[in-house]
Design a protein around this nucleic acid. Structure first.
Ligand SMILES: [Mn+2]
Ligand SMILES: [Mn+2]
Length: 288
DNA sequence: GGGTGTA
DNA sequence: TACACCCAACGCCGT
DNA sequence: ACGGCG
């Protein structure tokens, strides 16, 4: 059995999944081949949610999937959620990604925990969701503000582009605290930001509260909630990718949608040092 | 994309 | 054989 | 209790 790469056959490898960007199903698999050394540890052995677009991102069909369908490829692992018995999905290796690509998966989302410790999250996520038309520089400034606050609390942090309109700031955790603890921490953190700068931030998701502001989406930190995985493609016309970056890059103006499949910026990023290389070393227990 | 249910 | 259908789900918030 | 929302 080949490890690390697959010869799994793709049906219709030349089908355009991102017609506007000219990215085919094979092109998507090639993307994952290129990023896999950096991506693997963030996606394997975690419950997943999938955004599937079997006819491409411009097609009619697009759906979100958290549970197994009958007959799914054996490279896609299934595990009963101890809470409700639903069959959660996960992958163990690159063959799993290949199987996802064959299914028309255009976004890979991860739970904030591994399958071996499903009740103790190993990360906190702050998902910055700006209102339409907010200046990208305001979003960068908000992201840097989150870093400053986390630094002040002595909490490790890394950042990635979302591939959409914002950034994701991640606190690597040792999986000690439970979901309630982690979500409450994230909620309190978001509310503190809103209180200190209510013109810029809101901790309330409603469109109304978000007008002209950035929603600090702490709700990603709930059991069963998911966030787009590092290096996942996005179901946007441009085939953007969520990419880990360094804090200096954010300071120097990197934008949330600056990276895309086959893009120059991504190729360059992959040649530089891994911005999240120390992720596992940085892990810290919340509270403790 | 593909299994399932209905004709 | 030929189709249509399904593919998550839940807490938060304003009313 | 319901609808919008992520
Ligand atoms: Mn977001
Ligand atoms: Mn969000």
């Amino acid at each position: 059995m080949e490890q690390g790469r697959t010869q799994m056959d793709l049906s219709h490898p030349d089908k355009l999944l991102w017609p506007e960007a000219g990215v085919t199903k094979q092109g998507l698999l090639d993307h994952y081949t290129a990023v896999w050394p950096r991506m693997e540890r963030f996606v394997v052995n975690r419950p997943l949610a999938l955004v599937r677009a079997p006819d491409g991102v411009a097609g009619k069909q697009r759906f979100f999937q958290k549970h197994a369908s009958p007959g799914m490829h054996e490279a896609i692992g299934k595990m009963a959620d101890p809470e409700d018995g639903e069959e959660l999905l996960y992958i163990k290796d690159f063959n799993g990604v290949a199987a996802l690509v064959q299914l028309g998966v255009v976004e890979i989302h991860i739970w904030g925990c591994t399958i071996d410790a499903i009740d103790t999250p190993d990360q906190v996520v702050f998902d910055l969701d700006p209102d339409e038309g907010l200046d990208m520089n305001d979003v960068r400034a908000a992201t840097l503000d989150i870093r400053r606050r986390l630094d002040g609390l002595g909490l490790p942090n890394v950042v990635k582009t979302s591939g959409g309109k914002g950034f994701h700031v991640i606190v690597p955790l040792k999986p000690k605290a439970d979901w309630k603890t982690v979500k409450t921490f994230a909620h309190d953190f978001a509310e503190a930001m809103e209180q200190s700068d209510p013109e810029k931030y809101t901790a309330t998701l409603s469109k109304k509260a978000r007008t002209g502001r950035i929603f600090i989406d702490y709700l990603r930190n709930a059991r069963g909630s998911t966030t787009v995985a590092p290096y996942s493609s996005r179901a946007k016309p441009n085939a953007t990718v969520s990419v880990p970056v360094t804090w200096p890059e954010v300071e120097n103006g990197v934008g949330p949608a600056d990276f895309s499949i086959d893009g120059k910026a991504l190729g360059k990023a992959l040649k530089a040092a891994d911005p999240w290389g120390d992720f596992d070393k940085l892990r810290k227990a919340l509270h403790g």
